[in-house]
Amino acid sequence: MFIGSLVSLLGLGILLWLLFTLAIHALPFFVGLTVGMYANESGAGLAEALGAGFFAGIGALVLGQLLIAILRNPWLQAGVALVYALPAALSGYYAVHGLSGIGFDAEFFRVVLGGLGGLIIGGTAWVRMGNLFGTGPDPIDGEEATILPR
């Protein structure tokens, strides 16, 4: 019984780690999945649909990187990062809502925990979007920025 509980907690921890790590890729994944499903339903073969979805997802990720690198206004950069973080928040809500069903039967607590999880995961993805593309906080003590000069 103890080993089963320990393995369950380990599995839950790995799932949460994956959720936080892959949260910033929620929008490119959604774009790639949507394009691939549309291509498959419109008569393309499996290989063509997979290729179209893969390249559409890569294009969405590269577009976000280019927009954040090109835009100099921090408000516009934050807006682009927010567009990429909103699907992460939505996926975080549904993941925590589903996982909280293991311990809670009351729907109210599941919705509250899902909302908190969505806020935390979406906020983490928003901060990581800025750090991923080199637009994080300014250097401390007069050090020069090494990724993107301002």
Results as ranks from 00 to 15, higher is better:
residue 119 L to R: 03
residue 145 A to R: 14
residue 63 L to E: 01
residue 143 E to V: 04
residue 84 Y to P: 02
residue 44 A to W: 05
residue 57 G to W: 04
residue 113 L to A: 15
residue 9 L to K: 14
residue 108 F to H: 13
residue 67 L to T: 04
residue 1 M to R: 13
residue 12 L to Y: 10
residue 85 A to Y: 04
residue 117 G to N: 03
residue 19 L to S: 14
residue 118 G to H: 10
residue 27 L to I: 02
residue 63 L to R: 04
residue 41 E to V: 05
residue 30 F to E: 07
residue 25 H to I: 02
residue 30 F to T: 07
residue 42 S to L: 14
residue 21 T to W: 15
residue 71 L to A: 13
residue 40 N to L: 09
residue 122 G to R: 06
residue 100 S to F: 14
residue 125 A to S: 14
residue 136 G to L: 11
residue 137 P to C: 00
residue 125 A to I: 00
residue 83 V to W: 08
residue 128 R to G: 00
residue 116 L to S: 05
residue 149 P to Y: 10
residue 75 W to A: 15
residue 28 P to D: 05
residue 47 A to N: 07
residue 25 H to K: 03
residue 129 M to G: 00
residue 137 P to A: 09
residue 136 G to D: 14
residue 90 L to Y: 14
residue 98 G to T: 06
residue 93 Y to L: 14
residue 115 G to V: 09
residue 20 F to T: 01
residue 53 G to L: 12
residue 109 F to L: 12
residue 33 L to Q: 00
residue 66 L to E: 09
residue 3 I to R: 14
residue 66 L to N: 07
residue 44 A to V: 03
residue 36 G to V: 01
residue 86 L to E: 05
residue 127 V to N: 08
residue 42 S to A: 11
residue 22 L to E: 13
residue 73 N to S: 15
residue 65 Q to H: 11
residue 148 L to S: 11
residue 87 P to L: 07
residue 36 G to D: 01
residue 78 A to Q: 12
residue 86 L to K: 10
residue 78 A to M: 12
residue 145 A to L: 01
residue 81 A to P: 03
residue 78 A to N: 15
residue 131 N to A: 12
residue 119 L to C: 06
residue 27 L to C: 03
residue 67 L to I: 03
residue 133 F to A: 02
residue 15 L to Y: 07
residue 136 G to M: 11
residue 150 R to E: 10
residue 26 A to D: 09
residue 6 L to D: 10
residue 148 L to V: 11
residue 115 G to P: 05
residue 21 T to R: 14
residue 148 L to A: 08
residue 141 D to H: 06
residue 26 A to K: 03
residue 98 G to D: 09
residue 35 V to C: 05
residue 123 G to C: 09
residue 23 A to G: 03
residue 113 L to E: 07
residue 101 G to S: 09
residue 71 L to Q: 02
